[in-house]
Computed example of a mutant assay.
Amino acid sequence: MKKAFIAILVLIIAVMSFVGCSKEEEVSGDNSLQEIKDKGYFVLGLDDSFPPMGFRGEDNEIVGFDIDMAKEVANRLGVELKLQPIDWDAKVMELDNGNIDVIWNGLTITEDRKEKIGFSTPYLNNRQIMIVGADSEIDKKADLDGKLVGVQMGSSGEEALTASEEADSIKEIVKYSNYTEALLDLKAGRVDAVVVDEVVGRYYIAKKPGEYKVASENFGSEEYGIGFRKTDQVLLQEVDTILEEMKAEGVTTEIAEKWFGDDAALK
């Protein structure tokens, strides 16, 4: 009788443990990582005119620092990476609608964005700088008084400029779909300055020596992160773990040196 009682007790405990696990899984309801592994790929949403983070190379293939980072992460996840160019101003909608799995393309971490999406651990430092023509007298933020200033729609540069003390004194904030158009207009004299991510701005300047320069003042420092749906915490945590491994192994430094010449911008 005693043996039978013990056997029944063990069975009850086992059943309760199983039920408890099932309830825990049901409460979490986060199959984001497994869904990626099951379909065999994850879709990266990006602005494909954002060098050196993600842009079209000479053969029209999408390349860049973030692309190389994402390829390594996908490889370690055991899945394929698919690249999906998007309207940057609609990036959160694209993510929420399931058209992409992550936003990974020089995405600045801001308090406003944190309310809408989840972020990975920051992986890169950045600043919002002012680029002006090589002969421009604009050097300080106060010099933007009465000027036309270009930004990319939906960018952290637009947010920083709009929130600045100088915003009210600017004649007009001209919005572009990408920085290529903004800098072409700067060269043509249709705007007086462009507020742009430093990693992007300095890349453009290096490609066009003598055409542009960086003003001495900027609109603040920031950090880049990868954007996820708020419900996809398991996927986010796995990617964070992989990024830590890549950094510890020196892989991230190798990729940074390829695109930036050094790893000074890395977190």
Rank of each mutant, 00 (worst) to 15 (best):
L235F: 15
Q237A: 13
A256E: 08
E244D: 04
F228Q: 07
Q233K: 13
Y224C: 05
D232T: 07
K230T: 04
V234F: 07
Q237R: 11
A256P: 02
M246A: 08
V251C: 01
T252R: 02
T253F: 12
T241Y: 08
E257K: 14
E245Q: 09
G250H: 09
L236F: 10
K247N: 08
T252Y: 06
L235T: 00
V234Q: 15
L243G: 07
Q233H: 12
D232S: 12
A256T: 05
Q237H: 10
G250N: 00
D240L: 10
A256I: 02
I226Q: 04
I255S: 03
D232G: 04
K247D: 09
T253P: 09
E257P: 05
V234G: 09
I242A: 00
L236V: 14
E238Y: 04
T252P: 08
D232C: 13
L235E: 05
G225A: 08
E257M: 06
Y224R: 02
L235A: 12
I226P: 02
G227S: 03
M246P: 04
T231E: 15
E254A: 13
E254R: 07
E244H: 07
M246C: 04
I242K: 00
A248T: 12
A248D: 13
L235V: 03
Y224E: 09
T241R: 14
T253A: 15
R229I: 01
E245S: 10
T231W: 13
R229V: 00
V251T: 11
I242M: 05
K247Y: 13
V234C: 13
A248W: 06
K230V: 07
V234K: 15
V251D: 01
M246F: 10
G227A: 04
F228G: 05
I242R: 10
G250F: 02
